[in-house]
């Protein structure tokens, strides 16, 4: 079997370090600041919003970028996006260990885990009518079919073409997800968790939506709300996330995209007369 030769981005480790030392130095500074602030609990009604150090780290990161404080340049931005996976690997390994330690929780959930990924399909059902009412056209199909992480975006590009309206919509939500997704998932999980409608086990499993960082944020909030269920929640979040990662690509390809496309064809003629008229198309441009 001919194995494709891996192309190395840097000539040597030294070369890599020459670019990336700054990113690590900044990351350590952000950790110093963010973890010193620690968790902040804001009481809201009966429950609370929990702010985690990762939220401050994300905000500090965005502010350091080339468009605000200009501490880092574009080459650092590119390098940092490759480093996310370096940071997330040990984290996922740690969750895997928690899962292994609580293997009985997984065995209990058993077949439920195999089917877990289908719940995501409520996303397009809820968002597509809103997108059409806001005046979006075909880009709403790309935007609404999923939470639009890298692999979803790749599929949309593949099916509709990289220049399509659908791909533009997908990229828009990808950017929104990157900017606010982690923080939003943490806050949303606190709110939905506190309604008491769902069992902590279901909440934990549901955190695995197919985006590691969003899963982590949601499950961290849930563990803070239900400390006595913390191990169970992180176990199911981790296994749910792994399942969603494996089944997600097929669910997106064979169900989410065709379904959203079909739904658009049904809803658009009915809803577009009520839609907001945009003065120009600027909000759909990326």
């Amino acid at each position: 079997m001919a194995k494709k030769q891996e192309v190395y981005q840097y000539a040597s480790l030294k070369d890599r370090f020459r670019v990336e030392w700054k990113i690590f130095a900044l990351a350590y500074v952000f950790i110093l600041i963010a973890d010193n602030i620690g968790q902040i609990k804001i009481p809201v009604g009966k429950g609370m919003f929990i702010l985690f150090p990762i939220f401050y780290a994300i905000i500090l990161g965005v502010l350091s970028g080339p468009q605000v404080l200009k501490i880092v340049e574009n080459k650092h931005v590119k390098a940092a996006s490759k480093l996310v996976v370096v940071g997330i690997c040990p984290f996922i390994a740690k969750l895997g260990i928690t899962a292994g330690a609580n293997i009985d929780v997984i065995l209990d959930a058993g077949p439920a885990l195999l089917l877990h990924g289908f719940g995501n399909l409520l996303g397009p059902l809820l968002a597509l009518p809103i997108a059409i009412l806001l005046g979006m056209k075909r880009e709403s199909v790309g935007a609404c079919h999923s939470i639009n992480r890298e692999y979803h975006m790749a599929l949309v590009n593949n099916i509709y073409g990289p220049d399509s309206a659908e791909a533009r919509g997908s990229l828009s939500i990808y950017i929104v997800g990157g900017m606010v997704g982690t923080i939003y998932f943490g806050l949303m999980a606190s709110v939905i968790g506190m309604t008491g409608l769902f069992h902590p086990q279901a909440l934990g499993m549901a955190s695995g939506v197919g985006a590691g960082i969003m899963m982590a944020s949601a499950s961290a909030s849930l563990c803070a709300i239900y400390p006595e269920w913390a191990d169970t929640i992180s176990t199911l979040a981790s296994v749910g996330e792994t399942m969603a990662g494996i089944t997600g690509i097929y669910i997106t390809m064979f169900l989410a995209i065709p379904m959203t496309d079909k739904l658009y064809k049904i809803l658009e003629p009915k809803l577009s007369k009520f839609a907001l008229k945009s003065k120009n198309e600027e909000e759909t441009q990326v």
Binding site: F30, I54, I58, L60, G61, G65, H76, I213
Partner: peptide, 9 residues
């Protein structure tokens, strides 16, 4: 992870 993700976006 947050620090990297923030810089990356």
């Amino acid at each position: 992870v947050g620090a990297f993700a923030g810089l990356a976006i």
